[in-house]
Structures are given as C-alpha cells and as structure tokens.
Design a protein around this nucleic acid. Structure first.
Lengths: 251, 251
DNA sequence: CCCAATCATGAAAAAACCTGCATAAAATGT
DNA sequence: ACATTTTATGCAGGTTTTTTCATGATTGGG
C-alpha cells in the first residue's frame, strides 16, 4: 500500500480516535513504511496537538479526560458564552437533537430549570447532564459507544435519528470553512451528524472562533445547510462576514 | 495485552480513585507486567503526588479524608465481594447484558483490564463505568431515560433487547423469595428485566443477602428461571439452602 | 523473634528513540 | 526542458527508555 503523508496522517488520526491509542510498530506494518517515518508523523501530529505522543506510539488527546479529570475544559469561558446564546433559541415543547462535545455540555448546564422540552442525543456525557435537569425529557439514541467521542455510533443510531423530526439540532463542530463546509476527522461521528442535520428543521452550529476557517479530512455538510452559527464573538465580527453574506444567521 | 506506560498510569490512577487503594500484586496480574514495573509506576505516581505509596501498594491521596468519612462503606464492601464472584463468570468474547444498580456498578469497576467482551445495557451510570474500560465494547439500549432509575425504559428498549441473544445476563435485584420469585416495584424496570432474562442464555442475579427472602409488588420471573444467585455469603450458607435445592447455582 | 512478602538495586537485554546523511521524488525557478 | 531547491523517506549508528531478572535488604504480621 502506498500512502502520501497527508493520507497517513488522516489514517493515523482515525485510528487514534477509534482505539484511543496506536503503536508505532503496528502502524509501520499497516501502512508499510519505516518506523522512523511513523515516528516523524506522530511527532508532527503531536506538535499540532492532534495526538499525545508517548514512548511506543501515541494516545488520543481525550485520553486523559476519558480516564480521569472532570475539570479543565479547553476555553471553557468562551463556551459558556456560546451556551448562553444557544439556550435562547430553545422553547417549551420543542424536540431538540444534540451531539456531544464540551460546548454541548455547557449548553446542558445552562438550561433554564423550568424548561419543558425533549432532548435527544447519543452523547453519554450529555445524557448525564440532561438527567440532572428537573423537567426535560431525555431520549437516548442507542448503539455501540465510541470511547473516543463518547457518543453512540453505528447504523442503528443513524436509523433511529432518521425516524425523528426535531425542531432544533445543536451541533458542536470541529472545523468549518466556506470551501469545505463543516468537516471532522472521525468517520462514524460524521455519519451521525449528517443524519442529525437531515432530521432537523433548523441546524445550529456551536463553535469557538478558533475553529472558524479551518478544516479536517471528512465533510459533514456544506455551509449552506446550516441555519445558524454561534461563536463567542460579537454578532457583527468581521471574521463571520463571509458566512453572514451567505445568509447564515450569526449569533 | 500490551499497555503503554501512560496507559498503565491512567489505569492505576483510575483504580486508586475508584477503590481508594491498590495492591502491587493485584495490578501486576491485571496489567500483566512484573511487579517491579508496577512498583516503578507507583513510585512515579507517588513522586508527582497522585497517589500515596505504601508497603504492598498505594492509597488514594485523599486517604485521610476517606478513611474517616462515613460513606456507607459497609454495604459497599459486600457488593465488592459479590462483584468479585460475578466477574469470574465472564470470559473473553462473551456478550453480556446488564441492568443498573450499585451492585452492577461495582461489577463494572472490577472488570479485569484485558477482558475483551461486549457489554449491553440501558443503565447510564453503567455505560459511564464501562466506557472507562480499555478493551470492552459497550452497546447502549436507546429509549427514554427514566430519571429515577437512570436507565432507558420503553417499548423501543424492550424491542431492542428482544433482538439480542446474550451469553450472560447480570441482574441486580431488589427482592427474591421462593414463593414470589424475583420482584420489583417499578413497572417500566420490570418490563426491561423480563426482556433481558428472556434474551440471555444464563441469568445471574446479584444481591446482598439482606434482600434474600423479601418481596415487592411486581413479579419479574420465578426463581426457576434464574441460573445463578450471587451474594456476599459463603456458598454453602444456610440461608441459601432452599434455592440450592431448586437446582440454582449459588456463588 | 521469625518468616514470608515486599522492596531497592544494579545488570543486562530488548525495544524505541534521535541524529545525521544519502537518495529519491516533488516543487520551483530559469 | 533543465537545473536548483525543497521535501520526504529510509538507513546506519549511537543513545535513551523500558522492562525483566537476580540478589540481598527490609518490613510487618503472627
């Protein structure tokens, strides 16, 4: 098998997100390159924070939180701002589809206590948060749990989502730009998000401004399929101008 | 199983935070490395203040607080005994259906780290525990979440369970006696447990001895439908005699 | 006080790592 | 089209890390 560097990086990233770890020796025979090359790849991925390099291979960056460290969410205060803006869109009686990710968790924490709505998600941490709420109904999408992303993924989950017609869909996203649309690096998660977008009247993307105008290997949808983008920036910030011109609502 | 150093550290930390103590000898067979390696790991974790190293193993840094705090340790230690007995029944490659409840959670915490099995459950806390495990697969039964019992309940969940044929079913039970069989007091939960029993080759009930020979309003199944009962009592305890005579395996 | 379990130490081997260099491929400039 | 630069890869070597094992010393319960 011949693989370009970029391909290798995508492949390695996928493996890391899937299994939470990779071994250099293992990758070396998989991709059929020398271990030195793998090591250099891992070094680069580590430099850009995509993986954590360790002796013998690499681990998922979410590895530490997977095991134990409930606090220390990256740019938490920004995500709180985003969550506050997002919560204003939810009204009593609505059916709301949500993904996972730390921004969605912040949203879950700021839901007003008297809100009566139905939340549907495959994200285990999100379910745990929603469960604490006194009045909302929680529906879990069942399927196999991906340990890296902590959401259920697979055909069953996609099917179930397709049977739903939700009012809102809140999506924490990893990358968005005009050219590539919304992109991600985990195949299974992409399938899920695609289905969620198609099953919702209105699609709202939540992201910190840092991820605006970046992209990853796999496309989820084009920018035009999104109704609203919420960042921590003021709504008329210059960075969001191209998206506003496409008719996307910016909050 | 191969575990990188970083992974071992995370695993050890997780165990320490969970059980408040670990034994070197124990970890050594769990992770399948020499005790020397474990000792060095503990030394490093101790140097960075993550654990307190003592002769024979390590303790949680919050040892002092924990030791004097009255956290219903009594009933918990019994459940640990039960969990230890239960875990011996699980073998690589098995499909295991489990319910919820604190006994099941103890079971989740003592699963050996190299175990490769598939766990299927509708219990959210159980899913969270299973997610921490490095090698097992986790399948979530989706449906509406019951906030009181923290498991998914409803027709969808029952349907999904019916489609499964599991090797083992671990059920934490609330009441059992010869006359009424296994009984409970939550209608939705009973439906779930009935389906789980029918979808499993072997049904194992976990309960503290205190609940033996008690009953509740709604029947789940008769005693004869159970294959194994696990309590914290020695296997030949007099209290279990009637069940043993019915051909039930007592552990 | 005794003895088995646990520990510390150092040696040795294996695995993984880094560095520099040579080669080849790709990109760039003329 | 050709030369030059840049980038990517593999390989040889020497270094570091990780691990096990052997050897006594130490510990702590009975």
């Amino acid at each position: 098998m011949l693989m370009l560097k970029r391909e290798r990086h995508a492949y390695i990233l996928h493996q890391v997100n899937l299994h939470n770890k990779v071994l250099s020796s293992n990758l070396s025979v998989d991709i059929n390159v020398s271990e030195d090359t793998i090591r250099r790849d891992l070094q680069e991925l580590s430099d850009s924070g995509k993986v954590i390099k360790v002796h013998g291979g690499a681990l998922s960056p979410s590895f530490n939180e997977v095991y134990y460290s409930p606090t220390q969410v990256y740019s938490r205060s920004q995500k709180k701002i985003i969550a506050q803006k997002a919560v204003s869109l939810i009204q009593d009686g609505m059916f709301v589809l949500t993904g996972g990710g730390s921004t969605i968790l912040e949203l879950a924490r700021v839901l007003p206590p008297q809100l009566k709505a139905t939340f549907i998600t495959g994200s285990i941490p999100a379910v745990v948060e929603y469960m604490h709420h006194p009045t909302i109904e929680v529906i879990v999408i069942g399927d196999k749990v991906s340990k890296s992303s902590k959401i259920t993924v697979g055909g069953e989950a996609v099917d179930k989502i397709r049977q739903i017609k939700a009012d809102l869909c809140f999506l924490g996203i990893n990358a968005i730009d005009i050219e590539h649309g919304i992109t991600d690096n985990d195949w299974d998660v992409v399938q899920l998000k695609k289905a969620m977008i198609e099953s919702s009247q209105k699609v709202i993307c939540l992201t910190i401004a840092e991820k605006i105008n970046s992209f990853q290997p796999i496309q989820i949808c084009t920018v035009s399929q999104v109704d609203t983008i919420i960042t921590e920036l003021p709504k008329d910030d210059k960075k969001m101008q191209p998206y506003r011109q496409m008719g996307i609502e910016i909050l």
